[in-house]
Computed example of a mutant assay.
Amino acid sequence: MRTILYSLLLFTAQFLTAQTATKEQIISDLPEIEITEGINLHIISPEPIQYVDLSTYKLTGDMPTTNIARIKITDTLDSDGKEKVKKPVVFFNGDQIGIITVVGQSFIAQYKAVYRNQENLNTITNIHIQPEAMQPIEFEKMVFSNLELRKFAMDIVQKKTEKNPIRKEKNLKLNVQLNNVYVMSDYIFLDMTFKNNSNLSYNIEDLKFSIEDKKIHKATNNQSIELTPLFQLNQNKHFRKNFRNIYVFKKFTYPNSKVMMIRLIEEQLSGRNIEMKINYSDILKADTI
């Protein structure tokens, strides 16, 4: 009985290890990508690329967009592999000239770059990373202190506000605008400006953020989910003309049937309140800090 139980436990442990262990990659098993001098190879990722590694100086590249890595053969090298002395690079058809590694948000993909001469009319100019080439990875989620969040917020404030803000609302000589949306790890930063075009200063009683139904029907109740910023750069409750602030939230999502509602409310006995709706598509267009 003990032998059977031990064998069962050993089999279960081996099975779980096989299911959870990341497969080791061997160079000979990597898929090949053909590349030719004078022709850029574009690697298209299904999600934003976090990191690209080119194993040799024979290859060079850049990222024209967050989802595309552009790779090409280096034109000239010196004997140390550095671009100092202009010396033409000579390759022979079929030579392996490096390993290309692309890391996305949830995967790593690696390829062998193989040289093909210009006479080969079938040289590939772009590839989409396929599921079979992806190895799953999971990055540890970052947790930032208020000091770090303040630094990121100050970096945003140093940027000039966009001439065309994402959203803008006017009411009773008040302007509220969403200058831009930024993202860092699992944090969303809202860059907002408030303008008072009257001669009366504005005393803020509350600034409320919530997720609400886009369309409210009489027969149903509006479902409102309140959002509370984890951090805000300025704690000012009073401004005369202009007031810019950064509000930081933990990453959130909401469907197209809902909107993010922002309400600026003045102290009691005043009717100078203003609200602004933000679609989720505005959040999806967030820039990285």
Rank of each mutant, 00 (worst) to 15 (best):
N117S: 11
D95C: 06
I129D: 08
I68V: 12
G81I: 03
I108Y: 03
P88T: 05
I71P: 06
D62G: 12
Y57F: 05
T74E: 07
I108S: 05
A69D: 01
F107E: 03
Y51L: 11
E47D: 10
T125H: 12
F91C: 08
H42L: 14
N122T: 00
D80K: 14
D78K: 10
I71R: 03
H42A: 13
E119L: 10
I137H: 06
N122I: 00
T76H: 15
I44N: 15
T123Q: 15
Q118N: 13
N67L: 09
N122E: 15
N93W: 02
F139S: 07
T56Q: 07
P136E: 14
A109T: 02
I124P: 04
L54K: 09
I108G: 01
G94L: 02
N117L: 05
I44K: 15
Q105Y: 04
Y111P: 07
I39H: 15
M142Y: 03
D53S: 12
V102D: 03
D78Y: 05
D95P: 01
T74G: 06
K58D: 12
D95S: 06
T65S: 14
Q110K: 14
T65F: 01
R70T: 04
V114A: 11
T101H: 00
V90Y: 13
G94D: 02
A133G: 00
L121C: 10
L149K: 07
I124Q: 15
L59A: 05
N40T: 08
N122W: 04
Q105R: 15
E148R: 01
F107N: 02
I137S: 05
F92E: 15
L121I: 07
V114M: 12
I68A: 12
I44Y: 11
V52A: 05
F91K: 08
S145I: 02
P46K: 12
M134V: 00
I43W: 08
F152S: 11
I68T: 10
I129K: 13
Y51T: 00
I97W: 07
Q130N: 07
V103R: 15
D78Q: 12
V52C: 03
I124H: 07
D62C: 09
L41W: 06
D53F: 09
I71S: 05
E83F: 05
